[in-house]
Simulated assay, not measured.
Amino acid sequence: MYATVTDMIARFGETHMIRLSQPEDRTAETVDAVKIETALSDASSVIDGYIRGRYLVPIAAPPAEIVRASCVLARYELAQGEHMEPSEEMGKARKETITWLENIAKELINLDVPVALPAGPAVGSGPRMSDRSRIMSLDSLRGF
């Protein structure tokens, strides 16, 4: 996972995390860490899906941007429930995060993490060989 329950509390506040992790219990005084960790794990999987082609995943020491993205995605996930709907602000933050991840996948944004090595030779690289002689050459086209 790229973020922890502590990261979520630090970013969004303990009261908000209690309400999102235990929406049915209005008297709860502690967060449901298991529920938050599940949402964070799901968010990490989404992030890995976008960056897998460019970077080695999982990222051992995730930069702050990845931690933030994980928290935003997990918060949105926690807000979806039987009696709850994500707020407009949560939806906007999620959309911006997904766009940011898409830009990473398109190589428009670079992260300061180890890059994945290509699995095979790059297309169009290296020497080219042919088993036949050219049909059209300068000599065969002379006179036309």
Rank of each mutant, 00 (worst) to 15 (best):
residue 41 S to N: 14
residue 71 C to N: 14
residue 48 D to L: 00
residue 46 V to Q: 10
residue 65 E to P: 01
residue 35 K to D: 08
residue 72 V to A: 06
residue 68 R to N: 13
residue 60 A to N: 07
residue 59 I to G: 02
residue 59 I to D: 04
residue 55 Y to F: 15
residue 71 C to A: 15
residue 76 Y to C: 08
residue 52 R to A: 13
residue 67 V to F: 00
residue 40 L to W: 12
residue 73 L to S: 04
residue 77 E to L: 14
residue 36 I to T: 07
residue 36 I to C: 09
residue 63 P to G: 07
residue 42 D to F: 06
residue 57 V to G: 03
residue 74 A to Q: 10
residue 34 V to I: 14
residue 50 Y to M: 00
residue 38 T to V: 10
residue 71 C to S: 09
residue 41 S to P: 03
residue 54 R to S: 14
residue 73 L to F: 07
residue 47 I to R: 03
residue 38 T to R: 12
residue 48 D to E: 14
residue 35 K to N: 08
residue 50 Y to D: 01
residue 64 A to E: 09
residue 51 I to E: 04
residue 64 A to Q: 14
residue 61 A to R: 12
residue 73 L to K: 09
residue 52 R to L: 11
residue 58 P to Q: 02
residue 58 P to I: 06
residue 58 P to V: 05
residue 48 D to M: 11
residue 36 I to R: 04
residue 60 A to D: 13
residue 78 L to W: 04
residue 78 L to C: 07
residue 53 G to V: 04
residue 60 A to L: 14
residue 48 D to C: 10
residue 60 A to W: 02
residue 43 A to L: 09
residue 65 E to L: 02
residue 66 I to V: 15
residue 35 K to Y: 10
residue 42 D to I: 01
residue 46 V to P: 01
residue 69 A to G: 10
residue 49 G to D: 03
residue 65 E to T: 11
residue 76 Y to Q: 14
residue 47 I to L: 01
residue 40 L to R: 07
residue 44 S to T: 09
residue 51 I to V: 11
residue 50 Y to K: 06
residue 55 Y to T: 08
residue 79 A to Y: 10
residue 51 I to T: 06
residue 35 K to G: 08
residue 45 S to A: 15
residue 66 I to F: 06
residue 45 S to N: 15
residue 77 E to G: 08
residue 59 I to L: 05
residue 48 D to K: 11
